[in-house]
Design a protein around this nucleic acid. Structure first.
Length: 318
DNA sequence: CGTGTTTGACCAGCGC
DNA sequence: GCGCTGGTCAAACACG
């Protein structure tokens, strides 16, 4: 994961001394002139400017922290790749004899890597004895942070799913929900969603198969989906695996963020599955950065923000 | 009334 | 062969 997937720049475009805001300031100044602005207005403006400067400084600090984090992550990733390359053979031998499908998926997620085009354990003969899904279906996995108190098993990934079953599994007290892609009748993709046994605030979504249709539901997509910036196809959850801070329907007011932590399909194994090793505060910080970056790239948002700020100033009763 | 969810029943793979 | 377990089906139900 290099800076290719994390844009460490966060230009909130709110610096009042930025030349790009000259027009806005002129407009605001003109309106202020119309109302014969006096000392309280200047004081209020000064407070706002001070606040904006403070936010800018904080933004800069956060950006630096994120950059350092990315560098640290890269070094850890290299170390991990070395370890994996050393241990893969012995681990395959140890795990391939254990059990059936579920373990096959776990294997693909924990040994081959975190999600992304893992051809679920067919690299050795033992694994190919597994059921058909394990042979043909592409398996990927995504982790989604949700409110632990929210017991709905809904992962909003932009596709439309129909729930067809729920089951309590032996190794996890929380139920596992089974979904089928309901957009295209012929779409073979299935999804399993279950809370992590270790961290109930994390939903683990396992995707099986490959969508044979386009991403259809922009409304269902997180509004901040541009963070998928280019390198991955947004209509394929395997090639665009997510670590999302997701809002459930019960908590629809919270923003949903989709963050592509993976390289494009076909990248090396070392780039996979490190999501769960990253510190959770760091993830949250990255999510915040991504949200801000996405918002500030949206001209509608910046325009609305400018209008809101100017409106706030002008609406003050003095 | 159409669509999606819930949930108990059923089926199949696997280990013993 | 039997029991355990995960996965799927389908009737009942809820909701807009």
């Amino acid at each position: 994961m290099e800076s290719a997937w994390v844009n460490t720049t966060l230009d909130l475009n709110i610096n009042p001394f930025d030349h790009s805001n000259k027009a806005l300031r002129r407009e605001a100044d003109g309106k202020m002139g119309d109302f014969d602005v006096k000392a309280p207005v200047k004081q209020e403006t000064g407070v706002l400017v001070e606040e904006l400067n403070r936010v800018s400084v904080e933004n800069k600090k956060l950006t630096e922290m994120l950059t350092a984090l990315c560098e640290h992550y890269t070094s850890l990733q290299k170390q991990y790749k070395e370890l994996v390359s050393k241990n893969t053979e012995t681990e395959v031998a140890a795990t391939s004899t254990k059990k059936r499908k579920a373990e096959c998926e776990d294997y693909s997620a924990t040994v081959i890597g975190f999600t992304a085009n893992a051809k679920s354990g067919c690299s050795d003969e033992n694994s190919c004895k597994k059921p058909k899904e394990c042979i043909n279906a592409k398996i990927s996995r995504a982790c989604v942070r949700t409110d632990p108190s929210d017991n709905s098993l809904i992962v909003r990934d932009g596709y439309q799913w129909r729930k067809y079953g729920q089951k309590v599994t032996r190794d996890n007290p929380s139920p596992r929900a089974y979904f089928k892609c309901s957009f295209a009748p012929s779409c073979p993709v299935k999804k399993k969603v279950q809370r992590s046994a270790e961290d109930p605030s994390i939903l683990v979504a396992t995707y099986e198969g490959e969508h044979n249709h386009a991403h259809h539901s922009p409304a269902a997509l997180p509004s901040l989906s541009p963070v998928n910036s280019g390198s991955t196809t947004p209509n394929n959850p395997r090639s665009a695996p997510v670590f999302s801070s997701s809002s459930s329907p019960a908590n629809s007011s919270a923003p949903t963020v989709t963050l592509d932590l993976m390289k494009p399909a076909g990248s090396d194994d070392g780039t996979k599955k490190l999501t769960q090793q990253v510190d959770q505060p760091a993830i949250q910080q990255i999510l915040v950065q991504q949200m801000a970056a996405s918002l500030t790239r949206d001209p509608n948002f910046t325009a609305a923000l400018a209008a809101a700020i100017s409106g706030k100033v002008l609406d003050q009763k003095w």
